[in-house]
Each structure stands twice: as structure tokens, then as C-alpha cells.
């Protein structure tokens, strides 16, 4: 039987090769056949999850909560020192300087990344804006959302901070950040499903010790990670409660 590994579609595109290298490393280390499937969108990935096709996933906090609570997945590790933060960006030419300057009817470009959309909407609450007073457009990726802002087709966009940092310097120059979340308690996790229940501890050990070998170090570099740290059931539970509170 071949197991399936997938990655939340919000990862920066320049790390695609990194995940293929990671998959090769993981297959060898576990001595298991693993297929890496990179879904083009959050919807297609969720469909695959619903169909029971996925065994391991590097999941965003929102999907991790669903996978753990509803699908019997267990969080084993998270990238060291990385947390998920959202930014609301606009064009440098825009007249608004802060969230309070935004008015009903503001056009928002967003992806289907539920955690980032929750944070984005939360940051608009002080201006009394919500989905009923905004014009939202859902697009397939952060670069597309950014493009709509730069083309003047959207006033603002909700973007994962890490994705913004990965844009080219010339694109970033044309953007300004209206507000940035400062949470520190939300992060992506590597979650493992029930078909690999007997390998969860082995996978956790492998990931946590990955930075100690030269090969593992190289793989981490390709992912843009320093290393992995273990996630306990209580830590995962805490993050799920936090997501619940933001809904």
C-alpha cells in the first residue's frame, strides 16, 4: 500500500522542490512507499481528505483542527520558531493608512485559507466591517490576491505573512501593510492519520531529529525550516480552541 503525503496549498511556491526532496527522505527513513500529492487548491485538498486519500499532511491550523477533531489525525511536529500571522495589504498608492480608514464596500481579495481569512476578518472588526459589508473575491493563491490589489481590482487582500515575505522585492515595493496580526500561538503542524497510527512516534522522532544529520539538514534547508519541534496533544488542543474562539 502506498501512503499519501500532502501539503497545505498555502506554502510558498519556491518550496515545491523542497517537499519532493522531503518525501524522498521520509520514504527512505520510514522504509515505506509514500506518494506526495500537491493539490492546487484548498478545495481539492479537502475533497481528497474527505475521500480518505490522505495519510500525512503539513496542515494549516484550521485544517489541522478539522483533521484532528473529525478525522482521527494526530499532530506530531511543527517547524521550529515559525508561527502563522496574517497581513492585510493594499497598494502603496491607496489613500488609506489604517484599518479605520476602510469603509463598507471595500473590495477584498482572499484565498480559501480559512485561518488567514479568520484573522483578516478579525482585524477588520474594529472598523465594523464584516463579510456582509465587504465585497469579497476568493482567488486560488496569495500571488493572485496580490495581483488583484496591484491591478486596482481589489482594495485590500488577506495574505499569509510568510507568503508576502516570499514575493519579489519589486512586488513588495508596490504594497503596504495596513495591519499585521501578532498572535504567536498559531502554526502549521505535521499531522498523521489513522492508517499510520503505529508509525506516529517514529515519524515524530524522525522529524524532531532531522536537523542532526547532514542529509536531514539539507532537506530542511530546501523547505526553509531550521528544524522540527514536537507538538503535544495539549498544545494541539490549545490551538484548536484558539481557532474555535476566532470563528
Amino acid at each position: 500500500m502506498t501512503f499519501q503525503l500532502t501539503v497545505s496549498p498555502d506554502f510558498p511556491p519556491n518550496h515545491i522542490a523542497g517537499w519532493y526532496i522531503f518525501n524522498t527522505w521520509l520514504q527512505k527513513a520510514l522504509n515505506l512507499p509514500i506518494h506526495l500529492e500537491l493539490y492546487p487548491s484548498f478545495e481539492t485538498q479537502r475533497e481528497a481528505i474527505q475521500q480518505g486519500k490522505v495519510d500525512m499532511i503539513y496542515a494549516n491550523p484550521y485544517d489541522a483542527a478539522m483533521l484532528i477533531r473529525e478525522k482521527g489525525f494526530v499532530a506530531v511536529a511543527r517547524p521550529q520558531g515559525k508561527t502563522d500571522e496574517a497581513v492585510i495589504i493594499t497598494s502603496t498608492n491607496a489613500s488609506y493608512a489604517a484599518v479605520d480608514d476602510l469603509k463598507p464596500g471595500t473590495r477584498v481579495a482572499m484565498t480559501n485559507d480559512p485561518a488567514i481569512n479568520l484573522l483578516g476578518m478579525m482585524m477588520l472588526e474594529p472598523a465594523e466591517l464584516d463579510s456582509s459589508t465587504l465585497e469579497t473575491e476568493v482567488v486560488e493563491s496569495y500571488p493572485v490576491a496580490v495581483k488583484l490589489v496591484l491591478q486596482g481590482k481589489a482594495d485590500i487582500a488577506f495574505v499569509l505573512k510568510e507568503a508576502l515575505e516570499k514575493l519579489t522585492p519589486s512586488t513588495r515595493k508596490q504594497l503596504k501593510v495596513l495591519v499585521e496580526s501578532q498572535i504567536g500561538d498559531l502554526y502549521h503542524t505535521f499531522v498523521v492519520g489513522e492508517r499510520l497510527a503505529d508509525r506516529r512516534e517514529a515519524i515524530r522522532d524522525l522529524l524532531v531529529n532531522m536537523h542532526t544529520g547532514p542529509k536531514g539538514k539539507d532537506v530542511l534547508e530546501n523547505l526553509g525550516f531550521q528544524g522540527w519541534e514536537p507538538v503535544s496533544a495539549d498544545e494541539a488542543e490549545f490551538m484548536m480552541n484558539l481557532i474555535e474562539a476566532l470563528k
Binding site: 489604517a98 484599518v99 478579525m122 482585524m123 474594529p126 495591519v179 499585521e180 496580526s181 501578532q182 498572535i183 504567536g184 500561538d185 490549545f238 480552541n241 484558539l242
Partner: peptide, 23 residues
């Protein structure tokens, strides 16, 4: 209250603080 900041805490059943984030 600064834009974007989120204060997070947890308590036990009696309301005793068990976790406090930097915010």
C-alpha cells in the same frame, strides 16, 4: 489596544490562569 494583537489565555475550571501569551 494595538491593531492585530490577540490576547490569549487559558484558565482552569476555577478561573485560575494557566497560560498567558505575550500580548
Amino acid at each position: 489596544y494595538p491593531d492585530g494583537k490577540l490576547i490569549v489565555s487559558t484558565t482552569d475550571l476555577q478561573g485560575i490562569i494557566t497560560h498567558a501569551n505575550q500580548a
